[in-house]
Amino acid sequence: MDPAGVFATSFERDQALIRTRGQCVALVLLFVALVILPHVLGPRLVAISTNMLIMAVVVIGLQINMGYAGQINLGQAAFMGVGAYATGALAIKFNLPFWLSIPFGGCAAAVFGFIFGLSAVRIKGFYLALTTIAAQTLFHFLILNLPQSWFGGSNGLTLEPAQIFGFSFVSETSIYYLCLAVTAAMVFGAYGIVRSRHGRAFVAVCDDDVASGLMGINVVRTKATAFLIGAFYAGIGGGLWAYYVRFVAVDQFTLFHSIWFIAMVIVGGLGSITGALIGVFVIKAIQESFVTLGPSIVAQFPSLGGDVVFAMMNVFLGGIIAAFLIFEPRGLMHRWNILKRSYRLWPFPY
């Protein structure tokens, strides 16, 4: 939203995402910060940042599916897992380079997600949540029971580093840049999708499916498409993950992870790509600071014991999510928009 007195003079301007010089400067600064980050921060913080970038892709997918199209999805980690396994298998069995195996991994996840989307479009709310949990279960069942030569079964898959023109993405810094490039592209694409007729169709079917049908929107196909896009994003994130960790195993993609993804969407704010990014950052930052603080708390209060402290942390984080659901169900992005609106109208109260 523009500050008071700034008005769009053309439809192009009106639709543009970056509308003031301030926004432009902020974006450039953010980008510069992201580029120099590995040279400024220590290896652990770079690793956390890489993690955040990968999660950002997955959570943006969930945001499109859940925040825009209103389809609750407790299977996003499974979709990510499908992408990771497909990428891994393609890289190992067919020697595909990463710039092919990651997109194909995304497509494999998209197909998996679309199938669930199709079966889920006629169900709503709680039962839809249950159906998507089935995606999680099915994923685990398939990986563990398909022939071991396909996806490694319970041993998982071990990958060679991603390579291009003889360069290997081995170092923490190089893989960070790879993730940064892919994530930036996916974020850009997400803004495009949600601003297009597809994004409007997603919000429309979420708001009112009768009225959507009346607008000539194919409600069933639109909801399934939302799953497809959400799963594609998860799959791309999974592919990055496969090349980052270079080891893929089922226990990296559990229901627990899916719930965290949902928490990120909720804390950031439903229905906003920027919100998804904020949610990833905030939740991951809190999680990591707990991991860092944990041992020192244990050292302070040895009588508590490590188990209790770490259990308490999960309870605390769960409490934060619950508090958000109760007090700020529309997330941090909503709060920010309110602030911006009052700034735009300042010094008048309305």
């Binding site: 850009f188 694409g189 495009g192 999708i193 601003r195």
Partner: peptide, 11 residues
Amino acid sequence: MKSSIPSAFFY
């Protein structure tokens, strides 16, 4: 409107 999802991605 006709734009496909890939063309929306590139916007």
